[in-house]
Design a binder for these strands. Sequence first.
DNA 1: CGGCGGCTTGATTCGAGTCAAGAACCGTGG
DNA 2: CCACGGTTCTTGACTCGAATCAAGCCGCCG
Lengths: 297, 297
Amino acid sequence: MRSVLSQSARVELRPLRQKLVCLGVNDEWALEAVERRIRVRGLGRRGDDILAPGGSSKHSTLLIEGIACSYNVLTNGRRQIYAFHYAGDLCDLSRLVLPGANTGIAVAAITDCTVGFIENRDIEQLVAQYPSLALALWRASILEASMFRERLCERDQPALQRVAHLLCEQLIRREAVGITSAIVPFSQMDLADASGLSIVHISRTFKELLGLGIVAKAGRVMKVVDRERLMTLAAFDGAYLNAPQLLPHWSVKIEGPLLDQGKRVHRPKFGRRSEMPIARGLKDCSLGRQAGCGAKP
Amino acid sequence: MRSVLSQSARVELRPLRQKLVCLGVNDEWALEAVERRIRVRGLGRRGDDILAPGGSSKHSTLLIEGIACSYNVLTNGRRQIYAFHYAGDLCDLSRLVLPGANTGIAVAAITDCTVGFIENRDIEQLVAQYPSLALALWRASILEASMFRERLCERDQPALQRVAHLLCEQLIRREAVGITSAIVPFSQMDLADASGLSIVHISRTFKELLGLGIVAKAGRVMKVVDRERLMTLAAFDGAYLNAPQLLPHWSVKIEGPLLDQGKRVHRPKFGRRSEMPIARGLKDCSLGRQAGCGAKP
DNA sequence: CGGCGGCTTGATTCGAGTCAAGAACCGTGG
DNA sequence: CCACGGTTCTTGACTCGAATCAAGCCGCCG
């Protein structure tokens, strides 16, 4: 079944499989069908553009090995990394599904990596044939949105926490695809571009993390030496990542009745200035009585 | 066909229809099937929580009329609005598709509004039966992600531009569902919570916009009086919104051959430019054809 | 061994937050 | 129609985190 890949030595597909399973594909046939459609494009070296901005293409890019990032070049000339990609990620999925809104996607290699692709028409066929696959990819899109949202809501945090949070997210995502090494292969520039902080300030922030004994240097890149304290410092709650290790029951939830028992109390505040919010005691659905009505004649 | 709604006066469903069509649903039967499943929950007044955080429910919330926002309460006590919703939006779609990662969604009314819902099992059936609908909702998720991403990439912009950009986005989205009034019913506090700026600073920024003759006050809310200059000031490129008025050929593109000329040159930070093949002239995935979504048996 | 990419450090600047107090506004009820 | 009370906006003074500017250093790689 891997014959199509043999041309380029043995290619590791486990991360993709693992990811799809995480997202609810429980159909072995679907997984194998996907794997059969993967083609290897080649290697990218650190810093290379894996996917040049502005084009559109007939295939979608799959990161087979390594770490990459999606970025934008801002008006001030700096680049803003808005997403990281790990093995098994389709880097330009959104462009496939909604081409108009997603031109200009650029993806660069953070580490050397192996890049593959799948013909768009193959993906179309696959999602048509395996609904669970379509659902999984939809979920992948939502997951990406969750990460963006999380980043948006970090605005009030100081630099130290933001960086810590960023690292936490990477740790969890790495683990989700089976990477457990303590080394996080980001340079400080990567960190700067991803967090939106200046390199200078990242340097100072990083020094703080060093001082706290949470990270260490490992050549150009870094190493997380105290995962626990990192998580604490970042006040990290990885629920938004839907990672199995955090949500052990995900697999049950995925295709079952879409029920979920999250409960978290907090009160909205309206009008009041920055004071403690007033409890409005409005509970879900209390807006009004259900409009129970018959179905269509 | 609207009989199910008649109990609650005439309910306006055009925005939903318009939105779904925008997202590629070209099947009249699908549209009607969706409309038949809509139930009215009731009215929400400005400031009310339409959807309390933390709960989960068996139905998804549809904003039928008015404007709402999704928000989070940050650690500093302020609320961060991370998304606005207009008539026709399913406010908690992501929770339906990926429950684990999306607990804690809270939605509040920005203006008085009419709220409806659809049973989750109905949605499941609908997307299973009408693949184009599944695709449309998937696209809605991606659109939301695009807006988040856009916001992330605004970090380098000064307050004035950020606010202007925010307003531009609202104008386009309003127009996409047929709202053309110059009045944007946001208070300055809404603006502050959405942009992440302090109320004080919004006040000063707003004064600048007033001085430029771009906006005007209209009671508690505001009015855009010079749309053109607003767009220019914000350097607004609404491509990410996939709105018809900006991408006049969208309807062709969605299911037809897509040609898309993003040509934007920029230099990667270091390392050589990509030599990856960039194919263009992509003919769009008619992903819509049969992208089913697993539903309950 | 030279050089460039990457990191560090200090000095300085600046945009935006916070605090505080007051004015304008809005809807409501008398 | 007006007065009242809570919201919402405005303004000034002050603070601070992070950006920028400017050198200098480290260390890997050819």
